[in-house]
């Protein structure tokens, strides 16, 4: 009875150990992929820096308003593992481009039409006064350009409008790294949980072993 129980716990332990080893192997594989992707990203960034100039790809170019484009959802599973999955904020590609193009065109004086300096009142004749009044009214009619407070801007645009292809490659590498890092985070928690389970199973097995050996000694004594 005791021996079969011991065998059972040993089998369970083996199974858990195999799962643990598989997880470690997978973690190592993903780590290698992550490291090579990061390296690729840096290499592309260095190429971009070479073509744009040394100071053109640095922390100085970060925008004053930064909105995240990636979120990570952490879900605790029944087994105690935590599943991390990334979600990318959808950028309106077609509209966004059009909007951006428009915003680039709009750079310049905010008020349309010719502005006129306000002259001291004593020199203003009646004609000029009426003309000025019409000018003042004009900006009310023209729609004021709405400033978008939350532009969800592509970080690539911090570095200029026409950025080199290599910077785009760097961005895509790092996007992949972000996704992979969520997978690695999931695996890491799974590895730690498996380790805990293994420890508990090993303790149980030791207890069973001690019990069975004690029982065997008793039998021999009898």
């Amino acid at each position: 009875m005791g021996i079969s129980e011991l065998e059972e716990s040993s089998l369970l332990l083996d199974e858990k150990l195999m799962r643990f080893m598989d997880q470690l192997e997978l973690l190592e594989e993903k780590r290698a992929a992550l490291n090579s992707l990061i390296e690729q990203g840096w290499f592309s960034m260095s190429k971009a820096r070479y073509s744009m100039g040394n100071k053109c790809v640095s922390a100085l170019q970060y925008a004053s308003e930064i909105e995240p484009l990636v979120y990570v959802h952490a879900r605790t599973l029944d087994t105690g593992d935590v599943d991390f999955c990334t979600e990318r904020v959808k950028q309106k590609c077609g509209n966004e481009d059009g909007k951006d193009a428009k915003s680039i065109e709009d750079i310049g004086p905010q008020e349309k039409g010719v502005r006129r300096r306000i002259k001291p009142k004593k020199h203003i004749t009646e004609e000029e006064a009426s003309e000025e009044a019409s000018c003042e009214k004009a900006p009310e009619v023209t729609p004021v350009r709405k400033h978008d407070p939350n532009p969800q801007q592509d970080p690539l645009k911090w570095f200029g409008i026409l950025v080199p292809q290599t910077l785009k490659q760097a961005q895509s590498s790092f996007k992949q790294v972000v996704e992979l890092s969520a997978e690695i985070a999931t695996l890491q928690t799974a590895v730690l949980n498996s380790r805990q389970e293994l420890k508990h199973s090993m303790k149980d097995k030791h207890i069973l072993q001690e019990e069975s050996s004690a029982a065997q000694l008793d039998n021999r004594a009898d």
């Binding site: 990061i38 990203g41 840096w42 960034m45 790809v57 640095s58 922390a59 970060y62 004053s64 308003e65 930064i66 909105e67 995240p68 484009l69 990636v70 990318r88 904020v89 970080p155 690539l156 910077l167 760097a170 961005q171 590498s173 790092f174 996007k175 790294v177 972000v178």
Partner: peptide, 16 residues
């Protein structure tokens, strides 16, 4: 370091 942060910010993780 600067390059790591710049890369990940390019990837869209940054927030203020």
């Amino acid at each position: 370091d600067e390059d790591t942060c710049t890369g990940f910010l390019l990837g869209g993780i940054g927030e203020l």
